[in-house]
Each structure stands twice: as structure tokens, then as C-alpha cells.
Design a protein around this nucleic acid. Sequence first.
DNA 1: TAAACATTTTACCGAATAGTACAAACTAAC
DNA 2: GTTAGTTTGTACTATTCGGTAAAATGTTTA
Lengths: 199, 199
Amino acid sequence: MARMVAERSDAIASLAEVFREHGYEGASLALIGKATGLGKGSLYHFFPNGKEEMVRAVLADIGQWFEDSVYSPLRDEEDADAAIATMLKETTKYFRSGGRVCLVGALAVANTRDLFAQAIRGYFVGWVDALQAALVRQGRDVEQARILSEDAVLAIQGAIVLSRALDDPAVFQRAIDQLHGRLAFDGTALDNSSGNRSF
Amino acid sequence: MARMVAERSDAIASLAEVFREHGYEGASLALIGKATGLGKGSLYHFFPNGKEEMVRAVLADIGQWFEDSVYSPLRDEEDADAAIATMLKETTKYFRSGGRVCLVGALAVANTRDLFAQAIRGYFVGWVDALQAALVRQGRDVEQARILSEDAVLAIQGAIVLSRALDDPAVFQRAIDQLHGRLAFDGTALDNSSGNRSF
DNA sequence: TAAACATTTTACCGAATAGTACAAACTAAC
DNA sequence: GTTAGTTTGTACTATTCGGTAAAATGTTTA
């Protein structure tokens, strides 16, 4: 094997950034080449299927990062509140308080959605499910945990949109603080049985 | 003038749809021509500055619709609760339960954001301010109303993203229902004990 | 060293891109 | 019916697009 100095994985961080900033169609091979420092030949050597394969690699990388840094703690950490706090902290850092776009979210509202539908769905299903698990571990009702976890994930996506639109990171921060309050277990969750039977 | 059948304004609905579906860069003149039924000659006759002017016209049209159908009632309707219910109803219809993307939101997370920054900002500022006014009219604290209205607007944007990602209109609907509960004035708002928890 | 393989450079392709120029066709007013 | 102005079709730029081909260079293994 030749020198492994320039591996496929080395390019992925740059690829992620250029797709985040310019979208799928907006990221031309010229831009990609400039961002990665690789010529077309190298790019097509590492990603024979072109831009589509590059995005898939980026999505896989992003998915792995979230799995390790967010989903896994939410699912497995004993202290559910701590796992949720970690999620909010890591998410804030990752999205740079709304200064950084969520590539998956951006792809979800683009016309290229169908091409990556499975990966996009997996990203969000993983997030919602993991958060739901943590909320249930808090002692919440399964249904309420479902609603609440969907609510939290969409709030983060919306916070990115709004804080970018208003060009104000404080909007993102306030949304995260709101979520902190809404997701923290305050004991009242146990009281509301509202006739739900378990099965 | 020649046949008045084809006026500038007649094309705007089609333009809005094609930009919604394909984004700014993705909407080629070929697609635009097909969607509007106009050739390049006509398009550049009505919009001498090309795609940029088309998007500006679409954004102005969207802004006017929201002003009339949503912001104005929120600001001026005596019954604040009714105005909020109208907002949620009209919004659900407009975005087709998440099946239709918000062009302004999509532009906000695209690289073309800077080009339309003012219009994007105006759209969201108008929304948040109008909703805040309605919430204050309910008797809420100004600060809390601000937080709550930001929270609602970003939730709608996030609901579009998530429901599209999961390809499930029910997600959007649940988010709207949640908002209905959160925005309805239930008297507890005066206690100021909800929301903010220390951590 | 030499063969085997990995990587990169360079030149190239056809198609599609946004935008321009302008003559033809149409419509309304007189 | 003529004229003046509006709208549209067509042909045309110049550039960029994603992608291909293959020779050339580099690296590792034997």
C-alpha cells in the first residue's frame, strides 16, 4: 500500500465544512478541491461516486460523532439529568451557538432530501430515541417522553434557523436554557398519570 | 402593453414554489422557465436583475401575506387568544403540516443568507414582535412574552425540519398542538414559576 | 532493485449555467 | 390602419459544472 498520509478520512472534516457552508449543489468541485487541498483526481480516487459519496461519508462521520458524544450517553449514562446536560452542552459547542449550520437539517429541507433520506432520518431518529430513553429513565411517562424529546430536537433545529436569521447567538443560547428547564426532571411528571395505562 | 395576462405578479406564485423546492442555486433558469411558463426574454423583462430580483419579489410577497394573515391579527386583534389560534391554524395550512418548506428559513441556513439578510431578518422580527405583542396583551410579563414568542417561532421552523426529516406530518402537528398549550393564557403565567429552573 | 499498488497531475469532455442582444410578434390607443 | 409601446422567442455569449481518462509520480512490499 502506498503512503497512507493522505487518507480518505483526512478530507472528511474539510468536506463537512464546505457542504455546511455551501450546501450540496452549492459546493462545486472547485470549492471542494480548494477546501480539501485535493485535485479532482484524488477526490474521485477516494470517492469514486463523486459528491454523493462525499456527502454520505460526511453524514456517516457526523452520525458517529453524535452517537458517541450524545446518543450513547443519553441511552446508557445512569444519571439521566447529567446525560441531558451533556447533550445540551455538546450541542451548543458543536453548533457554535447557532453560528454553525446543521448539515443534516439543511439537507432535510433541500431538494436533495430524497437522496440522503435514510441517513437524515437515522440521524434524527437516533437523537429522538436516545433522548426519550433518558427522559423515561427520569421516571417520565413514555408518551410524554416521546413528545418532549421530539420537542427538544426540533427546538434545537429551529434555534439554529432563528439565531442565524436574526444573526444573534443569544437566541440560540436562550433556547438551550429553556430546554434545560423543560427537560430537567422536576418531579411533577410522576403526578400526571391522566389515565394512561402501561403495557 | 401587450397582453396583460402575463404580469409580473402572475409569476410570483410559481417562482415561490420553484425556489422553495430547489433553493436559490438549485433553481436554474430552465426550471424557472418551466415552472412559470415564461422564456428567458420574459423573465429578464420582468426581473431585469435576474434570479436575485425574483427572490426579492417572492420574499416581499411572502412577507405581505404573513403581515396580512398572521402579524396584523397578532398585533391588532382584541382577542389575543383568538389571534394566536389563527396564527397556528394559518401557519399549519401554509406549511402544509411540514410538507412545505419555509423558503425564508431555508435561505437563512443557506450560503446565500447574506444576500437576503435584511428580508430574512424582517420576516422573523415581524413574527416574533407581533406574537410578543399578543402575549403581552394576554397579561404576560414583557420579558417572558419575548422568550415565549421566540420559542414559538423557532419551534415552527424546527417542526418543519424534523417532520420533513422523519417524513411524518404528525410531528409537525404535535408541535403545533404543544404550542397551542404553551401559548394559551392559563393564568399561571402571572405566578412566574414556570420555565426557569436553576441549574 | 523490481514489481505492485496507491496517489496525483493534467488535459479533456459534453452538458448546463446565468445572462445578453435583438428582432419578431403582439396589443392598445389614436 | 397606423403607430407606439410591451412582451416574447431565438440565438448567442463566456463560464462553470460534474465527471472521465490516463499518464506520471510516489510508496510499500518482496
